[in-house]
């Protein structure tokens, strides 16, 4: 497997055929990390409307750092970041809250790895808080993809199973009617069967609402069967940028990235 994106582009996939669009989310040379320790060393990444992009890679590669930096929850160290047409200034530590709130208001939703739910609040309360004040249909729209969640709207998040919590976390993101959703480890701690149900739902949301989805996922094959494209990150850098179909066809490269060279 080569890590040249140009060769990957030679392979045909549905997305590669689409005319070039303005990406919703575009990152160039992003460096990120905690305090002064750089974990992500200059990566490029795009997400367009209506596509599901998977960000794969072994543990510690810097995927979560990348996502929370794009979401504004971590101050970026360097590089350019254009989100929904707006170039993001390099804000320091002090402006983290304002930056993250501003990005969310513009239409960037983020479902973090730990889901960040409020265990003391019910699902309905989560959605009510997340929806805009006047947006009366928001709750309905948010649970539409998850019939299982609709049945337990008045249950507290702390009493839900892992899968139900994950649905709520995604529904909370949808309640704000975002244009881009970033989801970190959708399948963490979930049984494979639940993952197999959730991932296609993300595909539907993406297609129905024209939303761009950036997915960090450890169930590689499940992720690739849902995504259009995938980036593979190893040690803070993108090592593979290819279509999902191509990666599915050649699993050696992935195995090497994950389990080490045989």
């Amino acid at each position: 497997m080569s890590d040249q994106p140009s060769e990957a582009g030679a392979l045909t996939s549905a997305v590669a055929q689409l005319p070039r669009r303005e990406p919703l989310l575009s990152v160039r040379g992003l460096t990120a990390g905690y305090n002064d320790v750089e974990v992500v060393h200059g990566i490029d990444l795009d997400v367009c409307a209506g596509e599901v992009v998977a960000l794969l890679g072994p543990n510690g590669a810097g995927k979560t750092t990348t996502l929370s930096t794009i979401a504004g929850l971590l101050p970026r160290i360097g590089g350019d970041c254009t989100i929904l047409g707006e170039v993001q200034p390099l804000n320091g530590k002090r402006k983290v809250v304002a930056t993250a709130l501003g990005l969310r208001a513009r239409g960037l939703a983020y479902v973090p790895e730990d889901r960040a739910l409020f265990f003391g609040l019910t699902a309905r309360q989560h959605l009510k808080l997340a929806a805009a004040r006047r947006d009366t249909d928001a709750i309905e729209a948010a649970v539409a993809p998850f019939p299982a969640l609709r049945a337990i709207l008045d249950r507290k998040a702390g009493l839900m199973s892992g899968g139900e919590q994950q649905m709520l976390a995604v529904a909370r993101a949808l309640a704000a009617r975002p244009k881009v959703i970033m989801i970190d480890e959708l399948s963490l701690g979930l049984a494979p069967i639940v993952v197999e149900q959730l991932l296609p739902l993300m595909r539907n949301i993406c297609q129905d609402q024209g939303v761009g989805v950036l997915l960090v996922e450890q169930h590689v094959n499940a992720a690739l069967s849902t995504a259009d494209r995938a980036y593979v990150m190893v040690r803070g850098a993108i090592s593979i940028n290819a279509s999902a179909a191509e990666l599915l066809a050649d699993s050696t490269a992935l195995s090497n990235a994950y389990l080490g060279e045989a």
Partner: peptide
């Protein structure tokens, strides 16, 4: 963090 992600 959850609050910020909920827009609070």
């Amino acid at each position: 963090k959850g609050a910020i992600l909920t827009g609070i």
